[in-house]
């Protein structure tokens, strides 16, 4: 296993299209729920322990070799907002394209064939990690980091927040990122024996509701 492969996969410049999504930050800024570094941190913390945990456990599960079709069904059941399901599949398709070009693998090919419109992004992420020779923990770390780095960098653009402040938010969250990544891997290991129903299902009502509001806007800076 190459540790550097993790840096390639987790790099914000990895061409997987993530920069076009705000992780719900655009809707929260418009609604006045994110107004600066303090509320951004609480937003990211809430996202980390809900969507972040669920995504990381799906990614870890895929990296451990759980059936990606079942994982995709579990992701659907954990995503009541159709706008978020569409965004997750779009991101999954873009990541799939980049991952297949970077780390060719029959498993990625099979998933791409099964879901021509894209599988849920965390499932693709887990299989991409596997194709890159990485493990479940690496996949979980990528997912938890994405769950907070997306909103943080989007808020820099949306609020003209000082990038140093945004990075400070991420740095303060790192002990919790460690904890959630561990929790996700443990849950994924349980799911290997106990089925995908054992995966976490932590939800964030305002992310779901905000995503539906956002999808209805005529003009927006970010896709979700």
């Amino acid at each position: 296993m190459s540790r550097a492969a993790l840096l390639v996969l987790a790099d914000g410049r990895f061409p997987a299209g993530g920069h076009a999504h705000s992780g719900g930050a655009e809707a929260a800024v418009k609604a006045g729920r994110i107004t600066g570094a303090g509320s951004l941190e609480e937003f990211c913390r809430g996202r980390l322990h809900t969507t972040g945990l669920v995504s990381a456990s799906l990614a870890a599960g895929a990296a451990l070799g759980l059936d990606p079709v079942e994982l995709d069904g579990a992701a659907d059941a954990r995503t009541p907002s159709p706008a978020l399901r569409v965004a997750a599949r779009k991101l999954g398709r873009q990541l799939m394209r980049a991952a297949r070009a970077t780390w060719p693998s029959p498993e990625l090919d099979a998933l791409a064939q099964e879901f021509p419109k894209g599988a849920h992004q965390p499932v693709v992420l887990g299989l991409a990690a596997r194709a890159a020779g990485l493990g479940a923990e690496d996949a979980a770390y990528c997912a938890v980091y994405e769950s907070v780095s997306g909103p943080a960098s989007a808020t820099v653009r949306l609020l003209s927040l000082d990038p140093f402040d945004a990075t400070g938010v991420l740095a303060r969250l790192t002990p919790e990122l460690d904890r959630v990544a561990r929790q996700a891997v443990e849950a994924a290991r349980c799911a290997v024996g106990g089925g995908v129903a054992a995966l976490p299902a932590a939800s964030a009502p305002l992310l779901e509701i905000g995503a539906e509001a956002h999808a209805a806007w005529a003009v927006r800076l970010f896709a979700s």
């Binding site: 719900g24 929260a28 729920r33 994110i34 509320s39 609480e42 937003f43 990211c44 913390r45 809430g46 996202r47 980390l48 322990h49 809900t50 945990l53 069904g73 579990a74 659907d76 059941a77 954990r78 009541p80 919790e176 995908v196 129903a197 976490p200 299902a201 932590a202 939800s203 964030a204 009502p205 305002l206 992310l207």
Partner: peptide
């Protein structure tokens, strides 16, 4: 036999961080 909906919400003292924040309950 297939999952249609699976949702969990934790709130109150000791719940995972951010539960009352701008992403969850505000």
């Amino acid at each position: 036999g297939r999952p249609l909906l699976d949702q969990e919400l934790s709130s109150g003292p000791g719940a995972p961080g951010g539960w009352d924040g701008p992403a969850v309950l505000a």
